[in-house]
Simulated assay, not measured.
Amino acid sequence: MPVNRNALIRYKTIDACLRRRNRKWTLEDLEEACSDALYEYEGIRKGVSRRSIQLDLQMMRSEKLGYNAPIIVVDKKYYTYEDPDYSIANIPLTQQDLGTLNEVVTILRQFKGFTHFREVDDMVNRLQHKIQMGKTQQRALIDFEKNELLQGLEHLEGLYAAVVAKRALTMTYQSFRSKNNQVFTLHPHFLKEFRNRWFVIGLRDEQEKPQIFALDRVQTFESNDQIPFRWDQNLDAGWLKDTIGVSKTSGQQRMLVKFRVSKDQAPYVMTKPFHHSQHLLEQAEDGSAIFTIEVVHNLELEREFLGFGQDLEILEPRLLRKRIRNRLEWAWALYQDKPIIQQDSPSS
């Protein structure tokens, strides 16, 4: 149930009073302490009534806020905690609390890398610690996927600002395949994260086709107000809706991929689909299953399938089936004792 700020201040004040066992607390004492706290924190001069304190004590004793405070009355006059170590600040988090905090942390973690959310970084770390410890001394039970060595996050805020402002950039970039830096004009349209790496998608120079650039390969960039921003209204996050990963060329058509998954891995593929278009086509008596997805053909797609090894077979289309077979043959050859005849890798 929602609790207003003033009530929370009163609960916290009453809790602090009852924890001080070197003094006996009457209703009048608690009234005075709460009135002083509200004046200090909120500037409220109107005192707190006895009725309000009685309702607060009743609420703290109840399960409505999860406190279940062991408040007792001594000599029919003085209020204290029956358990000397009790405090409303030490209440263990419930499973529902942990679930809610998990969702909040997942959302907040997406803002890491933005300097104006620097305070959020610290808050997220503290939230993660609280969740892991569950406000107890137990070992950490939750571990988020992260890459502490990830490069390029320092560019995230500036690129985001350029996307929002529709501002052209002069970018210095060095791809993994290039020995030298490239300097070009980029018209950034949106940002994309995949497998803990960030990418910026936009139009380069005067080219019409969208291109994708990894932030960890960006050397520098700066605004170029001398060049009008080129805007493509069709180039947004939806441009990659038929894509696994970020590799896609303009005009590339999606294909229907049909594949069989073994009985051991079928449940995993059912509960964690490769793509939102995934459809269960057939489930055999032996537990294996046949699925389909509609996606564009790229390297990330092949890597996802190869990760299942012998538990996944591509049935259609024939070209993709052949490429996966070639990759498996190449991998098999690497583990042979006899010398390998040098040949082109099927990576490209």
Rank of each mutant, 00 (worst) to 15 (best):
V296G: 08
N298K: 09
K272D: 11
A284G: 00
G245R: 00
F305P: 00
I293H: 00
H279M: 09
F308D: 01
P273S: 04
H279Y: 05
D286C: 12
I244T: 02
G245L: 03
F305Q: 01
G309A: 14
P273M: 09
F305S: 00
G251A: 06
H276W: 11
I314T: 05
K241D: 13
E302N: 03
K272Y: 02
E316M: 06
M270Y: 08
E300N: 01
D264K: 13
R321G: 04
R260E: 11
Q252E: 15
R321Y: 01
H276D: 10
E316A: 15
Y268A: 09
G309L: 13
V246R: 02
I293T: 08
L256N: 10
S277T: 15
Y268C: 04
K322H: 07
L301F: 14
D264W: 10
L256K: 15
P273T: 09
S288Y: 07
D242C: 04
I244E: 00
V295I: 11
S250F: 14
K241A: 10
L240A: 03
D286R: 03
S262T: 07
S250L: 07
I290H: 01
L301K: 10
K263F: 09
D286F: 07
R254V: 00
Q265T: 10
E285F: 04
R321M: 13
L281D: 08
G307H: 14
K241P: 01
E285R: 11
L256R: 13
R321C: 09
L312I: 13
N298H: 06
L319F: 06
K258C: 15
G245M: 06
F259I: 08
S250D: 14
K241Q: 12
I314H: 02
R260P: 00
P273G: 06
G307K: 11
Y268S: 08
L281W: 06
D242P: 02
V269P: 04
A284L: 11
H279Q: 13
K322Y: 03
